[in-house]
Design a protein around this nucleic acid. Structure first.
Length: 499
DNA sequence: TACGGTCACACT
DNA sequence: TAGTGTGAC
């Protein structure tokens, strides 16, 4: 199964229904017009795609005709864009000239990868859409972190960050705080950290143990006796059918029986039991296998049963010394698939089109911020490690690559499965400014809710309007939480333990 | 019978 | 110290 965006698979069942109703209404709307075009749909984002179709219809009034004759590659019929036999599919739709097809990507995948695949298939008209506000979670190519014109000086930009402040009365305090934080995060090179996160390791472990489960929708359950047992892990294949541990608006999690109803072909695997309790040692030792591989490149810190931080500072510096990254040959292919937070995707395609260059040629430039060159090296090393992990353990993993653990952790799951995401220094401000407080580690629970309810804080940007002293005044001097929030996570999150 | 068990950490 | 609350997975 190919990769989808973090939301796409979860939304599949619901979005298909809603997409269908959108399609229906569009057909009705345009029903009295002659059909002149055909849309070939490749998407598991029907919600967004239908929005787009509706928008196109509005923009190109009278020329956008929606055709019932669609091929949906979704759910159990999912085929990744790059694996589709487009020639045959186009012919099935009576389309002979792929250059007259408009491709619309809204799938959270690497534009570089998609661009290559689309060009190879003969497509020449491509739109890349993103799913986030500009300047927050758009991703751009590896090449841009080598290009000084894309490296916005994080210190020079500092005054602009005041725009995100909603409490002007403490601007100066905020500026001082933000300054220290940004400088800490932006200059923290000694411990270039990254976090690699094993994805749904429980099901992956079971799928490795039992080859019949590979590629099949699989869940790990416990307490099989009541309603099929509680789900403790869901494979990506199963998520494609709408199986999920948490059911929105219902406090209890989905159980085995419900999973079977949603996905009749699903495999339920009982978690190992020892002395009447779930025994997770099997999954712990799987993590140990991965850590053993990662440890070849730097110090490891186990963060949980399926997460580990890896300090790649020394390895990245060594790589930079040996290979100055001034030619594309050294770029490891997997690394070129990195999702890099930063510029809007649209700029990339237009530039690529204008320059007519080979994609690989865009990956390297000699002038770049040293810190981000280190990050780029980190991205390459991580990509190599992920490939090695896959080869040696059969596990896929996602990773975040950033200048500290907090940022690495934050983005490690932003694109998955089996993807990695890089946070250039220039993207830190925008990322944090718009980040909902509850997404921040330690603020996911009651404290985060209090911040929202008591102080009206919605984003980390809002939170930065308050000084540490102010927050202590409101919530007590206690607390390890603030100490960690303002120090450990924000700045020098060096490795605190090793495995 | 009902169903999130478990671990880490900070505070009391 | 043991117990409790919180947060994360």
């Amino acid at each position: 199964m190919g990769g989808g965006g973090p939301h796409s698979v979860e939304l599949s069942a619901q979005s298909r229904r809603q997409g269908a109703s959108e399609v229906q209404s569009l057909e009705t709307h345009h029903g009295d017009r002659s059909v002149t075009h055909r849309f070939l749909l490749y998407s598991y984002h029907f919600l967004r795609l239908s929005d787009w179709i509706a928008t196109l219809g509005a923009i190109y009034e009278g020329t956008c005709i929606f055709d019932r004759n669609c091929t949906y590659l979704d759910g159990k019929d999912f085929v990744d864009f790059g694996s589709i036999d487009w020639g045959r599919l186009l012919r099935n739709h009576g389309i002979s000239d792929s250059e007259k097809v408009l491709i619309f990507f809204d799938d959270h995948q690497s534009e570089l990868k998609r661009l290559k695949q689309a060009l190879k298939a003969g497509f020449r008209h491509i739109i890349f859409e993103d799913n986030y506000d500009t300047g927050t979670c758009d991703h751009y190519f590896l090449r841009h972190i080598y290009d000084p014109s894309y490296i916005r000086g994080i210190y020079m930009d500092l005054p602009n960050t005041l725009d995100i402040c909603k409490q002007p009365k403490i601007l100066s305090e905020k500026k001082a705080k933000l300054s220290s934080i940004v400088q800490d995060t932006g200059t923290f090179a000694l411990a270039l950290s990254l976090l690699a996160s094993l994805i749904i390791c429980f099901t992956a472990v079971e799928q490795r143990r039992n080859s019949a489960l590979r590629g099949q929708p699989t869940v790990v359950v416990q307490y099989n006796g009541w309603k099929g047992g509680g789900l403790i892990a869901v494979s990506y294949e199963a998520r494609g059918f709408g199986v999920k541990r948490r059911v929105p608006f219902i406090s209890s999690s989905m159980r085995g029986d419900e999973a079977k109803r949603v996905c009749p072909g699903i495999n339920l695997v009982q978690v190992p039991v020892a002395r009447g309790k779930a025994n997770l040692n099997l999954y712990r030792s799987a993590g140990v296998e991965v850590v053993a591989i990662l440890a070849s490149k730097g110090k490891c810190e186990r963060a949980s049963i399926d997460e580990v931080y890896l300090d790649l500072t020394d390895a990245a510096k060594e790589m930079l010394l040996q290979a100055p990254l001034d030619s594309p040959e050294g770029i490891f292919m997997e690394a070129t698939k990195s999702n890099i937070l930063g510029l809007p995707a649209a700029m990339i395609y237009s530039e690529c089109q204008r320059e007519g260059k080979e994609c690989e040629g865009m990956l390297c430039q000699s002038e770049a911020d040293y810190q981000d060159k280190l990050l780029a090296c980190g991205a390459i090393i991580v990509a190599q490690l992920r490939v090695k992990v896959l080869e040696e353990t059969q596990f896929t993993c996602s990773a975040g690559i950033a200048h500290n653990k907090m940022l690495a952790k934050l983005v490690s799951g932003m694109y998955k499965p089996a993807q990695q995401t890089v946070v250039p220094s220039s993207s830190v401000q925008d990322l944090l400014a718009s980040l909902p407080v509850k997404k921040m580690k330690q603020l996911g629970g009651k404290l985060g809710s209090s911040l929202q309810d008591d102080l009206g804080v919605e984003t980390i940007g809002d939170l930065l309007s308050f000084t540490e002293e102010k927050l202590q005044e409101q919530y007590g001097v206690n607390t390890g939480v603030w100490k960690r929030f303002w120090t450990d996570t924000w700045s020098k999150s060096a490795m605190i333990s090793t495995v």
